[in-house]
Design a protein around this nucleic acid. Sequence first.
DNA 1: CTAATAGTGTCTGTCAGACAATATACC
DNA 2: GGTATATTGTCTGACAGACACTATTAG
Lengths: 237, 237
Amino acid sequence: MAGTSYTSEFPPVYVTVDVVLLTVRDERLQVLMVERGSKPWRGSLALPGGFLRQTEDLADGARRELREETGLDVEPAHLEQLGTFGAPDRDPRARTVSVAYLAVLPALPSPVPGTDAAGANWEPVDAMLAHDLAFDHHAILAAGVARARSKLEYTSLATAFVGPRFTMAELRRVYEVVWGHPLDPGNFHRKVLGSQGFVRRTADERAGTRGRPAATYEPGDAIVLNPPILQRPPHVP
Amino acid sequence: MAGTSYTSEFPPVYVTVDVVLLTVRDERLQVLMVERGSKPWRGSLALPGGFLRQTEDLADGARRELREETGLDVEPAHLEQLGTFGAPDRDPRARTVSVAYLAVLPALPSPVPGTDAAGANWEPVDAMLAHDLAFDHHAILAAGVARARSKLEYTSLATAFVGPRFTMAELRRVYEVVWGHPLDPGNFHRKVLGSQGFVRRTADERAGTRGRPAATYEPGDAIVLNPPILQRPPHVP
DNA sequence: CTAATAGTGTCTGTCAGACAATATACC
DNA sequence: GGTATATTGTCTGACAGACACTATTAG
């Protein structure tokens, strides 16, 4: 950005925004996918996304695309930039650079997105990663899942997967599903409470289907966890 | 990216690439800055960068700008994407989106970059962060420094700051300078050797100016450190 | 009561930092 | 020898996982 002038020697590039929207549904990590209706990769599954508008911020573009393409009008509980993908041949039609965002939502009880507009649907992440996706969306999705896995360790991202009130078991299930292995309920409980500002206890309890009723919690003020909830190799003595 | 067509309703956006090139010189973390010669922010310091070419990959653009603007023709020891900055008003001339990269080099003995072309110079990071910079380069630099600080913990990034052969003290000084506080030499030594594949011992030794000669090491195969070299609050018993 | 889930307590191994001790160079 | 730096060793506290134990509900 130092001393270069704007001339036609720099042909413009199309900037798009794509969103990896993750949630935990049915004990599985799922991602919102849309089916492409037009030419390249017609019929393939793709991440929701589209062209950046001239005067909108990148994150606003991500939120707008999510709204437009999925009929989903909830603000994601978490939205962060994931990375920018700009291989010269990633779109056969023109040079495009895609700014990818990672978004997280709790599993919504009623409105399954995509019932209205385009064919947007929740799909299991594992299946999508074993699948051919449009453009370089396989790499973008893989980056999103990797980011979510590692951010569970050292940030309070997990609370974005659950509702405003949650039990320890619900929070633990987020970790188990995203990491793909079970956690010790007792140790998890102790670690979460020991992590400064991660969760705050509420007054109510919630009777599950069976067993002792669980205390409920709400997200605390912490964004970075201290100490972190580390994903460790199991202890082999 | 699902089902939208390319029309003029999507005005093009200029895509630039900016680079935060860090090194450790004179016991300080320094960053390569160029002085702007043209209109907006003329005379201000800016990160090296420029327009993305039509057919080049993003990382290639970062390497090219580094070469062109600094007369530096060494391949950076480390280059990774930092993030994309695209606030609608970040450049008063036109809508630009900048893909920022973080690059790391060892302190080069002889060729001070910028002696030839533009006025490129190493500047202490602390001074730059207390300084007004062109565009949103203050935020980009801050992101780069934060990324470097945290990546020292869990990746082998530190080896990119030192030469192909280094002593434990040299490696330790990288951590001390980037983190801004001293480390215990003995504990550091033990932790680095205990981190699988971080460094590999070489046959030679190196006699410093004073004291017992130090063993030299070269970078190992590990990219992610296991266990990590954690930056911890000091122990208060 | 039994089963199931929530939550607490305890044991033990690992590993961090603090710091002492030893090794080996230059002066 | 004296000093400076490198390297190794030791002690102790924090904390993780493993797992036993208690608490409280539904059926």
